[in-house]
Each structure stands twice: as structure tokens, then as C-alpha cells.
Simulated assay, not measured.
Amino acid sequence: MNNASIVFTPAAQKAQAERGSARAYAARVAEGFPDTVTPELAKFIAEQDTVFLGTASADGAPYIQHRGGPPGFIKVIDEKTLGFADYRGNRQYITLANLSENDRAYLFLLDPARKQRIKIWGRARVIENDVALVEKLFDAGYKAKPERAILFTIEAWDVNCSQHIVTRYTEAQLEAGFADVRRHIAALEAENATLRAQLAQVQTQ
């Protein structure tokens, strides 16, 4: 048995068969999905500053919560485990309540600038009162108050297609691009000033 049924549940496989896409996914179903952190996945995670965390209550009521922080706020603990500090928020505690009765969870990572997205299925647990772990996961200098840690055990992950992702850039990404433009403009202005000076010198001779 592999983990394909986590990503493609029996109902999903039935729908694929009925709608003609089962053959396209037959090899993946036979092989299963990756369930450990590869260097490529680790690099992608280290570049992200946002994630959507999906959980559900014991009776299946779904909930999605945005989590964010500095790039790389999600840490790779080991080849099967991710972790991040849980910051003080609006104190609704829906995610924490869901995980207390149903540990199944899902991470959706989206990088609009590169038009890439990765889906991760697994189990999550809340770790309270572990100061050392929170300090390990918290990015020093970030303006937030960490209250606990959340650890996520990977059961399967998949790279989603880039269709319909609208390209967007963060302020930091735009600033880096503008910095290159400003340097290029400064170089052109300096060259222009030099040429004007040379022209003026020629005209006075």
C-alpha cells in the first residue's frame, strides 16, 4: 500500500474514472506521492512567507487559516516534519480546537512571483509550553509574540500546476527590482554627463 489514497481518495479516483482522467494519473497512483522533504521542497519552503493551513473539526467542518512570517518561517525539523511558531492573534482558536480532536491537516504554499504552488497532506499537533522549541522556530526580530509551536508530519505532497496563478510580487521583491533599475539609470546619467562635458569641451575649442 502506498499513500496515493491520501491525495486521490477513493471518491476522487472514482470521479477521475468517470470523467476520463484516470489514465493520466494511473502511474502516480501506482507509485504513490513523495512523503519526505527533498532539497527542492526544502528550498521552496525556505523562500515562502505565507501558507494556508487547512484543518477540520471532528465532524468534518472545514477551516482554512492564513499563517505568515518572514521568508523561511516554516522550518524543516527533519525529513518528515515541518514546524512553525504560532503567534498571538485574534484568539478565536479554531485551528487549535480542530487539531485537538482531528489531527489531519493540509498546507497550501503559493509563490505568485514564480507561479508555483505545493500541496502537503499530513498530521499536525500543537505543542504548548516548550520554550526551547518555540525559540528554535521563532525568527528573532520578527514583530510578533510566539505562544506555542505547531509541528506538521508529512504524509504526502505534490506540485500543483501553475494555471491561473496571477503573478504578484512582494514589496521586498519589487524593491530589489527597482534597485537594479535605479543603478542602471544612475550609470546612464553618469555616462550622459560625461558625454555632455566632452561635447561642451569640443564646442569651446
Rank of each mutant, 00 (worst) to 15 (best):
residue 22 A to I: 14
residue 100 S to A: 14
residue 147 E to F: 05
residue 61 A to L: 07
residue 124 A to M: 02
residue 146 P to W: 10
residue 183 R to A: 13
residue 80 K to L: 13
residue 189 E to M: 14
residue 49 D to S: 15
residue 100 S to R: 09
residue 173 Q to T: 00
residue 168 R to T: 09
residue 124 A to C: 08
residue 193 A to Y: 06
residue 100 S to G: 11
residue 1 M to T: 14
residue 161 C to D: 07
residue 153 T to A: 08
residue 114 R to C: 04
residue 187 A to I: 11
residue 203 Q to M: 12
residue 196 R to I: 09
residue 125 R to H: 10
residue 178 F to V: 13
residue 139 D to K: 10
residue 39 P to Q: 09
residue 75 K to Q: 13
residue 138 F to E: 06
residue 177 G to W: 00
residue 113 A to H: 11
residue 119 K to R: 15
residue 196 R to D: 12
residue 177 G to I: 06
residue 172 A to H: 03
residue 85 A to K: 02
residue 20 G to A: 06
residue 77 I to T: 06
residue 166 V to F: 09
residue 67 R to W: 04
residue 121 W to Y: 13
residue 158 D to F: 09
residue 58 A to I: 06
residue 32 G to A: 05
residue 63 Y to R: 11
residue 112 P to H: 12
residue 79 E to G: 14
residue 126 V to C: 10
residue 164 H to Q: 08
residue 82 L to G: 06
residue 185 I to A: 15
residue 41 L to F: 04
residue 101 E to A: 12
residue 30 A to Q: 08
residue 82 L to N: 08
residue 151 L to P: 03
residue 139 D to E: 12
residue 12 A to S: 12
residue 107 L to P: 04
residue 36 T to L: 10
residue 112 P to I: 05
residue 101 E to T: 14
residue 93 Y to L: 10
residue 70 P to D: 07
residue 89 G to I: 14
residue 88 R to P: 05
residue 32 G to R: 01
residue 135 E to P: 08
residue 183 R to P: 04
residue 22 A to F: 06
residue 4 A to P: 05
residue 142 Y to D: 08
residue 44 F to L: 04
residue 80 K to I: 10
residue 146 P to H: 09
residue 64 I to G: 10
residue 30 A to P: 05
residue 121 W to C: 10
residue 167 T to L: 12
residue 142 Y to C: 06
residue 166 V to T: 15
residue 5 S to V: 14
residue 118 I to P: 01
residue 45 I to N: 02
residue 79 E to Y: 06
residue 137 L to E: 00
residue 46 A to P: 12
residue 41 L to R: 02
residue 41 L to G: 00
residue 26 A to P: 15
residue 20 G to S: 13
residue 151 L to F: 08
residue 24 A to C: 05
residue 179 A to H: 12
residue 44 F to K: 00
residue 109 L to P: 02
residue 96 L to Y: 10
residue 157 W to C: 00
residue 185 I to Y: 11
residue 56 A to D: 03
residue 62 P to E: 07
residue 30 A to Y: 13
residue 51 V to A: 14
residue 124 A to K: 00
residue 202 V to S: 04
residue 19 R to I: 08
residue 15 A to P: 04
residue 187 A to M: 03
residue 140 A to F: 11
residue 33 F to S: 00
residue 49 D to V: 09
residue 174 L to T: 15
residue 94 I to M: 03
residue 179 A to T: 12
residue 22 A to S: 10
residue 45 I to C: 05
residue 45 I to M: 06
residue 34 P to R: 05
residue 38 T to H: 12
residue 188 L to N: 07
residue 120 I to N: 00
residue 32 G to T: 02
residue 84 F to R: 04
residue 172 A to W: 05
residue 93 Y to A: 04
residue 126 V to S: 11
residue 20 G to T: 09
residue 80 K to F: 14
residue 137 L to I: 00
residue 53 L to W: 02
residue 104 R to V: 13
residue 166 V to K: 07
residue 91 R to C: 09
residue 186 A to T: 15
residue 159 V to C: 05
residue 129 N to F: 15
residue 120 I to C: 02
residue 182 R to M: 07
residue 142 Y to M: 05
residue 111 D to T: 03
residue 33 F to D: 00
residue 89 G to D: 13
residue 76 V to G: 05
residue 124 A to R: 01
residue 100 S to Y: 06
residue 149 A to E: 04
residue 77 I to P: 06
residue 42 A to M: 01
residue 72 G to D: 04
residue 49 D to F: 11
residue 32 G to C: 02
